[in-house]
Design a protein around this nucleic acid. Structure first.
Lengths: 282, 282
DNA sequence: TCAAAAGTGTTGAGTCTACACCCATGT
DNA sequence: ACATGGGTGTAGACTCAACACTTTTGA
């Protein structure tokens, strides 16, 4: 009968076959579209950050940022690190999406991916890493049909493409499968669809909409974010009352718009997620 | 410039350090407690399956069933396999819980765990695997206090213990940390707490309560399950109306109880999750 | 007979939606 | 002046918790 200490001295984890583990990040922001009239407040368009792969496999195709989890970090820290490397800023929110472990999802071998959603506020210039030939914000539109089929439309200046997917019920929930050939590497189209669906559901519950905005914001801007994500318009008067429980007034007002100044609000504590600055907390 | 095929031929995934990956399963069932009066319908108690570790590390401590993910299976298939090996039956539900990847969570080395919740209906005799000295159903009680501290009480015949935890906000949501020394191996107390919290939230949304029952059930039994999970009592008349959207009537009735026969219902399609029988679908 | 669950009806409180309406602003 | 968003008020529809009440059964 050996002791636990002796057991651990003789245990060699390298004796067993094991997969590689990555963290992939779906980084979202809202792109502001200025109106044609001086009065109109800007509208928002959801954008996602994609990189163009500079190396095999899927060379020259578009992919989510991501990388291998180091032996000294958690998957969450890895995701945060990837997001920071890609954008130069710390995301306002880091949401776990799920694990993607299909045996053949990566031609290099057995690679299990943990996917995260990151949300930024304002602008951020993407940085193409050493293994990427380009990095861009793509405007996203996401349509789900009642029959389970859905469409993601991605657009960045002159580059644009559609991805058709269908949502199917699996043993452990629902998953998206792609319907056609498209320029997204690996199973990243499925991951993106899962992220968009999660984002839409959470936005309806007032959970992630604050993370797209600076600390102080108008209720109009907040409603704009929610409507962009859910696709469901709400009467402004009613939105203001529904959101009242989640926000706190400040003493500050907007200026310079062609209409009555709007009071600025902050998010009330207790809802939503803000990453700690110190990584050790992860 | 090499082709993708040449790249993949030269790529050796074993050149890089990588973690091991496991799937751990939190297997729940409802234990039926017969009343003292012939009229009283049985009450339910939530039970979780724990094994007593027969090998180092954490030898003789209680743990969740689980095992290493094989190179030929997804984490979901691994979880389903573990659950079947441990109970002999296929669970009614398999819910993904999350990834647990703290660097020091396993003394054998870097082991990342994917946790799943499994739900069985009726009875199942647990089987202790080759590396376990015992396998038992433990009655569970779970109390969450408003200040974030919570208590899990586990009881199986003569064995019983309490685990105190506190829920803390992290960058990516909330996580549970244990407050004291207790006989649960690894970080399995945190995983169990996460499972209980998820179960409670889903039960309130009518999402997992059906999986604890056979295909045909009475609304009373269903309410019993929901109340056990949420801890919130509801007036029967109101429960029946709230659940109406999720169930369908059958032509069958209960018999032999000391009261008016109850119509049996089935779950309406579209809610909840039932695993496919074929593993290939995963 | 009677305790227990099955099942229906109702009332009042609260919530949500749609709409009407006035306010404040900068060009 | 006026388009635009800020902001309040409110009637009707809807939802929900609480409670009263009747029905059906087996020992």
């Amino acid at each position: 009968m050996i002791t636990e200490q002796e057991f651990l001295q003789n245990y060699n984890i390298g004796d067993y076959d094991r997969p590689s583990v990555t963290a992939d990040v779906v980084i979202f922001r809202m792109r502001t579209v200025v109106g044609n009239s001086f009065r109109k407040d800007p509208k928002s368009i959801l954008s996602v950050l994609l990189i163009r792969r500079g190396e095999h496999p899927f060379r020259n195709e578009w992919a989510l940022p991501g990388g291998f989890v180091r032996m000294t970090e958690t998957v969450e820290v890895c995701a945060l690190r990837e997001a920071q490397e890609e954008t130069g800023v710390t995301p306002n929110a880091l949401l776990y999406l799920g694990v993607f472990s299909a045996v053949d999802r990566d031609p290099r071998g057995r690679i299990i991916s943990n996917a995260f959603t990151c949300i930024l506020n304002g602008d951020a210039t993407p940085t193409a890493g050493s293994d990427a030939s380009d990095a861009r914000w793509f405007d996203v539109s996401f349509r789900e049909d009642p029959d389970g089929s859905c469409l993601i439309r991605l657009q960045s200046d002159e580059i644009g493409f559609d991805v058709h997917l269908s949502e199917r019920r699996t043993a452990y929930g629902t998953a998206f499968t792609t319907e056609d050939r498209h320029p997204l590497a690996f199973d990243h189209a499925s991951i993106l669809a899962t992220a968009l669906k999660q984002l839409r559901e959470r936005a309806a519950r007032f959970e992630v909409i604050f993370d797209f905005l600076p600390a102080e914001f108008t209720l109009f801007a907040l409603q704009n974010v929610q409507e962009t994500l859910t696709g469901i318009p709400v009467a402004p008067a009613n939105f203001r009352r529904k959101v009242a429980d989640f926000v706190e007034e400040t003493e500050n007002f907007t200026q310079g718009a062609g209409h009555r100044p709007a009071k600025l609000y902050t998010r009330k504590n207790g809802t939503g997620h803000r990453p700690e600055t110190e990584r050790s907390k992860l």
